[in-house]
Nucleic acid binder design. Structure first.
Lengths: 225, 225
DNA sequence: GTCTATATAGCGATAGAC
DNA sequence: GTCTATCGCTATATAGAC
């Protein structure tokens, strides 16, 4: 078999195993067997196990980079259709994690082991999402469409719903015995909750809905209970 | 040192190391050194490494069981003060994960490694939360306080915000460079978003707020987009 | 209870033939 | 490019002295 082909085959199998058992939990022997070659072959293509792992992380991050580019994110958020923005984002995230559960596992292992993928992903993806989506929310607040609430908290809340839901499906409840719902429905419901949750009191609507809030707020700034 | 004392000391150190590096990532030698004893001592108290791990998981699950009993959960949800229910729950969850970040890491490692702690935790905690909180929501829907939406989806959304936020603080952004917020404030904001997100259209209020929704909903039940 | 010393197995990685 | 054989090391676990 040609060098490049074999290499990518080993990479694929290793990716699968690392995502299942983590870096330390996967042996080079297992990788070799899964790839149908001897251990020596693995080390011919990748000098060390660490190098193999890095190659995977690079590959995954790059592949994700093209799938989840900040450009696209920016484009989605460039409109003013709140429902479209949040629901599209949600559906894309849910579909991504569904189509590639390996990635989430790899990412988690990496974060737990303190590996660099975690940091790379954080810097390349997470920060951008918070920045772009945060800015979108901030703008809509200025326009009076969203109520006053820390945009970063809103992003945290929304990504929390999405990532936690994906994590549930990928890690905890793969058969979805507890909650079975299509990604389309989930994206819509989560968006529903969030948008109603942050829509401003005054009727100022562009989602095809007319929403009114009249709120008496005797709340203290720092709620104690 | 007395047997029981030494045993619990080893258990503590092992817990710390396992939470940091996972099962396979932690060596018995490290555990012994951290405990200030020889490796032989570790194996005197725990026949195998696996047994030590199980002891930890048992301990953690039991300790958590007393901290997070379903009774308390039920009691919290027995009232009809929506804000109190959700905010108290949120604050407790956030405080718990903050006070014991080890647990979340241990749980995650366990889930990734397919260990039994994950299943135990799922059955003892997660199912109860979904059941009890889901029932609460269902009741409030019957009373017309909450709009019609799958209660399980609401629980998923809310727990998603909380767990993901804790995970961020414990795993990804320990210094909270991206979003620094007290647990009290976070609990309040998340509750705010959720409650506004699921409050019914008609004014039917018991949270000290008067809320009005007027919504034209040409939505299909199973949304395709 | 605690240690040193050791058994045994599996790991990552290499040598060298083909 | 691919293999078998093997090295050096570290891992879990045990034996036996004190």
């Amino acid at each position: 078999m040609a060098g490049g082909e074999r290499r990518s085959q080993i990479l694929r199998e290793a990716m699968n195993l690392f995502s299942k058992h983590g870096f330390r939990g996967t042996t080079t022997k297992e990788i070799a067997q899964a790839s149908g070659v001897s251990e020596a072959m693995v080390f011919r293509h990748f000098a060390t196990k660490e190098e193999l792992y890095n190659a995977i992380l690079d590959y995954k991050v790059c592949a994700t980079g093209t799938e989840h580019p900040e450009e696209l994110l920016r484009e989605i958020a460039s409109g003013k259709d709140d429902r479209f923005v949040f629901e599209t984002l949600a559906l894309r995230a849910l579909e991504f994690h569904k189509s590639d559960p390996e990635f989430q596992r790899l990412l988690l292992h990496s974060a737990l082991e303190g590996h660099q993928l975690a940091r790379m992903f954080w810097e390349r993806m997470v920060l951008h999402i918070y920045e772009i989506l945060g800015n979108y929310i901030r703008e809509r607040q200025k326009e009076g469409a969203f109520r006053e609430v820390d945009p970063l908290v809103v992003v945290r809340a929304f990504t929390g719903m999405l990532i936690h839901h994906s994590l549930n499906n990928n890690l905890w409840d793969k058969e979805q015995t507890l909650l079975k719902i299509s990604n389309e429905d989930a994206a819509r419901e989560f968006t529903d909750i969030l948008l109603r949750g942050i829509t401003a009191n005054k009727s100022n609507d562009n989602t095809g809905k007319s929403v009114r809030f009249k709120i008496q707020q005797p709340e203290k700034k720092s709620g104690k209970r």
